[in-house]
Nucleic acid binder design. Structure first.
Lengths: 309, 309
DNA sequence: TTAAGCTTTCACAATTGGTGAAGGCTGTTT
DNA sequence: AAACAGCCTTCACCAATTGTGAAAGCTTAA
């Protein structure tokens, strides 16, 4: 391992404080330890990170590059702690939100971002679970709000249409495939897929099993961006939400095809056990979701109109 | 410390592999060590993170929340390594980019994101330096492209207008201040500012010194979002780029006022030593910047048009 | 030149983290 | 029903990492 969260923390204090001494004080360790950690990082990167001026230190160019990343990483770890702590304390004002797949990385950032800005005293914890489990957890009261695919059995839960979520097939630019393609035919080709822990992956595997087949997965990747990039290189086909295909399709050289099967035409639902019994702040988020869904619909219309012009 | 990068890595392998054994194999340690690490995390969070089923493990709800964050943190550390390694090797295809302030977090994400997607074999390293140093580093050939404020002395460098970057004053909603305000008058009030390492902070402090005054900084924060939020709470005034004020102003309760002084009317420039001598891939990025600047200008026009309607 | 303020080095101590074997639990197989 | 295979936990022990405190060297300011 090249470095450590403590390394980053100490490095940052040093740069911000302008001296190793400052970093040592701030982190309750001795200057020698700071010096050692810094040196260790420098040799492992093979780069000087700070310039020793005899009156303190200043980051070198490399150090400045590190600063940006270190801030980000530490910031994320802080959020991690905050969110898990909030969850563990069951603190009033913590909403437990479940989504069906990472695909919601399409909508959630803006959606939650603006909500959290407007309500800085509310915490939201997010987790990715298969739709099936989401509805169970909602029923047991272990979560407040869930986003699930229309395929799930939502009996006994209150629900609202959220956004459409059609799955599409993406193929390398020079691949000879056309028109709506059936999953059975897709399975003839090598595929690029997401991690097995992601709901979408599990869903597709089950589907293949039902056809008595097995998908020929070439690689599994972390997110849709990587997936698209690998498809672009011609390594295989990929199945992604239309929003992702549109998003990355502009810059990448793959083509987007319809999937013939009915399940590709998904719809996402917002789902709760009982809106009335929900804490007020959770109802507030629910409302936020609903207005967002409205806006998304309008935006789609507007886009269509512009294209017409 | 509650956890460690190694903890996260191992936790993720365990969840993805579905067992501690799998995680142990993948990380070249013994199962007992994995177990110990997991337990340590669980007690420090005060939460069970996985459910032991006797036939492996499955993440609990809390565990699933952690998964998302762990992925993000580890992903960031990977990017950190990649970027610093690229920088240290001076690898062909690495562009060294400098910006004058973190304000570029306004433009850079989309800008670099789309560029890197279109050119997956090019690396870009980014660092934040005061404009003055940026121009020096460019002159010495220690960096390829810089973004600097118009205030810097760019003689001997080639430059293009990038985007306007007016500084504005933000005040809590119930504060009684109006119209264009001079910096001398701003200094009468408590201020919220960024870290001292950020160029903008240094610039403002120097400005105060020239007036023979000292800013009364209440708190220093990491980024403009936190700054805006604290101003919103009524803790003091803040000086931020107009883009940030617009971005957060929609959701927050502060007002935006003009700053009377001339330096508030900044303009950002893209700056290089010699376009011809630049490596081809760096010229490509330069071009990308130029088209982006064009688009931004057009978008501004379009927005103005819509408002008129 | 002195003094103050930094960083580095080094031997040593403390803490942390890993090892491997033994044991217990669960679900499967015969 | 009993043996089995796979998995997690515990524990005593050992190795590696990390922090400590003192001494020394360097740079700037008075």
């Amino acid at each position: 391992m090249k470095f450590d969260l403590t390394d980053l923390r100490i490095f940052l204090s040093a740069v911000e404080g302008g001296s190793l001494t400052a970093a040592a004080l701030q982190n309750n360790i001795v200057v020698a330890a700071v010096s050692a950690r810094l040196r260790k990082m420098e040799v492992s990167f093979g780069l000087p990170l700070v310039e020793r001026t005899g009156r303190g230190i200043r980051p070198t160019l490399a150090g400045d590059i590190l600063v940006g990343h270190a801030r980000k990483v530490l910031d994320d770890t802080r959020k991690l702690e905050v969110e898990l702590d909030a969850f563990s304390e069951g603190r009033g004002g913590t909403i437990r939100l479940l989504s069906n797949t990472n695909m919601l990385s399409e909508h959630m950032p803006q959606l939650l971002g603006s909500f959290l800005r407007q309500n800085p005293d509310i915490f939201v914890t997010v987790a990715d679970k298969p739709s099936m489990e989401v509805v169970n957890l909602l029923r047991n009261g272990e979560a407040d709000i869930g986003i699930v695919a229309s395929s799930a059995d939502m009996t006994g839960l209150e629900r609202w249409r959220f956004v459409p979520d059609r799955l599409v097939l993406i193929v390398p630019g020079d691949w000879a495939l056309e028109g709506p393609v059936a999953y059975a035919r897709i399975l003839d080709h090598p595929l690029i897929a997401l991690n097995t822990t992601v709901a979408l992956s599990q869903f597709l595997r089950r589907l293949a099993t039902e056809l008595g087949r097995r998908a020929n997965i070439r690689i599994r990747v972390e997110n849709f961006e990587s997936l698209c990039r690998i498809v672009e290189c011609g390594a295989g086909l990929g199945i992604v939400p239309e929003s992702a295909a549109r998003r990355y399709g502009r810059d990448m050289g793959f083509r987007t095809l319809e999937i013939a099967d009915g399940w590709a035409e998904r719809e996402l639902y917002v789902c709760v056990r009982n809106q009335q019994q929900l804490p007020l702040y959770a109802q507030k988020l629910l409302l936020h979701f609903q207005t967002y869904a409205e806006e998304a619909k309008n935006a789609a219309f507007r886009e269509a109109a512009i294209v017409k012009i």
